[in-house]
Simulated assay, not measured.
Amino acid sequence: MNADYRKELAAAYHKGGRQAVKEYKSQHPGASTVTVLASVAAVKRRPKDFAGYERRAVALFLTERDSVDLSNAALAAKLSADVPGYNAAPSLLTAPLGARARRAVREILEPRGFRLVDAQVRTLSKVKLALRALYAGEAEKLSFNGKIVFTEDAVIVGGRRHPIQTSGGHRRVHAGKFMLNVDGLKALLSPA
């Protein structure tokens, strides 16, 4: 049986605390003007089998690239699936990582060529988003090895001539459905 006693334990602690305050005030009349505010939370400990979940999460992101598209709830369920009787909360992925966990994440990512800035390693969710962006960039890479020549009246791309048109005082070339600004294209392609 896997009962959840958290609410009952918090209530019992709070009730005992009120009783203790009442007894203290009866023994010390000067304390009657002091109000005691207490916030109690009963928290279920993570099982020892779940230790090192940060490393497992990052390894999952690297081995199963589709895992970066899962929600935090689905990832938490996947990470805790091997631990009987424990369901990790989705907030686990948005909880700040400690220094040791951040170092562990970097030790896994850096040898594989992933260099993340500090802000991207604050939580597992941010690591997931950074890797998602990197994976999307890899999938959408487009390279061009041709030659681009700018003449007075045309832009020649890979041997294909695109005449320059002037509209609204701007020089543009027609490329498929798009009109490209010649000066902007020159600025993009010229070395800085």
Rank of each mutant, 00 (worst) to 15 (best):
E138Y: 08
L70Y: 11
Y53F: 15
N87A: 14
S125Q: 10
F114L: 03
D4L: 00
L189F: 11
V36G: 11
K15L: 13
L185R: 04
M179R: 14
V155N: 00
F178N: 13
D49G: 15
V21F: 07
A11L: 09
S26E: 06
K128I: 00
H28G: 01
L116P: 07
R65H: 13
I156S: 03
E54R: 09
K177C: 02
E110P: 01
R103V: 10
G146P: 03
V149I: 05
I156R: 08
Y86P: 02
G168M: 02
F61K: 03
A74K: 10
K126N: 04
A187L: 01
A81R: 14
E138W: 04
V105M: 10
L180G: 00
G169N: 07
E54T: 15
A77Q: 08
R102W: 07
A74D: 15
H174G: 13
K141T: 07
L129S: 13
V149E: 10
E140C: 04
K78N: 08
A42N: 13
G137A: 14
P111S: 01
R132Y: 07
R102L: 00
K78I: 09
R132T: 01
L124K: 12
A76P: 02
R102D: 02
D82P: 11
P96G: 07
D66F: 05
K147H: 14
L37A: 12
V117E: 13
L124C: 10
V127C: 12
E23C: 02
K15Q: 15
H162C: 07
P29S: 11
T151I: 00
L189Y: 02
R55A: 14
L124A: 09
S71Y: 05
A59Y: 00
R18H: 10
L188C: 01
A42M: 14
H14C: 04
R6M: 09
K48M: 05
K25I: 02
L70K: 12
L116N: 05
L60C: 11
S91I: 08
L62K: 09
R65I: 03
E23F: 06
A20V: 03
E64H: 11
A175G: 08
G52W: 01
R6A: 14
R161D: 05
R55W: 04
V40Q: 10
T123H: 09
E8L: 10
T63M: 04
T35Y: 00
T166H: 04
E54Q: 15
R161L: 08
G168H: 04
A76G: 06
V173H: 06
S143P: 06
K186Q: 12
A175M: 10
G52I: 00
E23K: 12
P163W: 01
A89R: 13
Y86L: 08
P111A: 01
L189C: 06
P191W: 08
P29F: 09
E23D: 11
A73M: 00
N181A: 03
V34L: 12
G30T: 11
E54W: 01
H162L: 14
